[in-house]
């Protein structure tokens, strides 16, 4: 049996990522670093797009979920695994991907814990609760001596490679895309459009919102794991409100609820951050002015394609 087109595309992307990764030694180190950052941004933005874009919720706590995944997977690979099995090659090829998944799962669990009680809240209330949750995570991490507290966690193995980053990005996009493109999946958009009408059509809106939160926070956790094993160190202050905003801006820039637009925006914004680095202290000023202008002139996102006629397949 031939798998559907979307799955063939996924397998092809994974293969290409593996191939390029094998030759990553020849890529300029700076460029490689930016590319890896962009890949992680794709994971973050696509997963938040499921929550904020397609399901119409407004989460401002994505950095908090990312932090959970980052710390969990870093603790697994640096502390727990070497104790159990010593330093082996297995760490990079077996333990590391498993730790990404574990970080994602823990993050998803936290996602349910946050999501379930707060999903009755609408719009800006939900935004402020998720924001508060992100701050709570930060404060807890700052007070946990086991993970380095406010000093941060250092000495994390740098396992993150092009393959793992773009493999994860491909899986994230595939999962979000497949979830949405089914009869079940149109329900996410229906809930975003009109919750009362969705319920009246038999859609369990709470179930949809929680699914979005679980899947979204899972991949935020995975992105956190990738980030931890890319940088080699973690600090709670790196997962502040600003980081969440950065991801939200990617989703808005790409046009909420558009798969490819958000991917492009994630890459663009990562590149823009690099460009603005030369502006030094002015970086955030330019960034916030851009954000305001964007909202005043193009709240629907940068790339507005005419509404594509969806073939009814």
């Amino acid at each position: 049996m031939v798998p559907p087109k979307s799955q063939r595309l996924l397998i092809a992307t994974l293969a290409i990522a593996a191939l390029i990764s094998a030759f990553s030694g020849r890529i300029d180190a700076y460029l490689l670093d930016v590319a890896l950052g962009a890949g992680i941004s794709i994971v973050l933005a696509s997963s938040l797009n499921l929550i904020n874009g397609f399901t119409g919720q407004f989460s401002l706590g994505h950095a908090g979920f990312m932090a959970v995944g980052a710390y969990a997977s870093a603790m697994l690979t640096t502390t727990l695994a070497p104790k159990l099995m010593g330093q082996t090659e297995l760490l990079q090829w077996v333990v590391f991907p498993l730790s990404l998944v574990a970080g994602g799962l823990l993050s998803a669990l936290v996602g349910v814990a946050v999501g379930a009680p707060s999903l009755r809240l609408k719009g800006d209330y939900l935004a402020i609760v998720t924001l508060g949750f992100g701050e709570i995570i930060k404060v807890i991490l700052q007070n946990l001596d086991a993970v380095g507290g406010a000093r941060g966690l250092t000495g994390i193995h740098t396992h993150t490679s092009l393959f793992w980053v773009f493999g994860s990005a491909a899986v994230t996009v595939y999962v979000v895309w497949s979830l949405l493109n089914s009869t079940f999946g149109r329900g996410f958009v229906a809930v975003a459009d009109d919750e009362v009408a969705a319920e009246a059509m038999g859609l369990n809106s709470t179930h949809y919102k929680i699914t979005a939160f679980v899947v979204g926070s899972f991949f935020a956790g995975v992105a956190g794991g990738l980030y931890a094993h890319l940088k080699g160190y973690l600090n709670p202050s790196g997962f502040s409100f600003d980081k969440s905003i950065e991801i939200v801006v990617m989703v808005i820039l790409g046009g909420m609820g558009r798969h490819s637009g958000v991917i492009v925006a994630a890459v663009l914004l990562t590149a823009l951050t690099e460009v603005l680095r030369s502006f030094g202290n002015y970086r955030m000023i330019v960034y916030s002015v851009l954000l305001i202008i964007l909202m005043l002139t193009r709240p629907q996102g940068l790339f507005i394609w005419p509404l594509k006629k969806r073939k009814s397949t």
Binding site: T183, R186, V189, D194, G202
Partner: peptide
């Protein structure tokens, strides 16, 4: 109260939800 951003087709399709086996 339709689902304004869904297509006409998807508006009807999504309502079949309660008879869906696969989620």
């Amino acid at each position: 109260r339709l689902f304004p951003s869904l297509t006409v087709y998807d508006n009807v399709r999504v309502a079949f939800h309660r008879h869906l086996q696969n989620h």
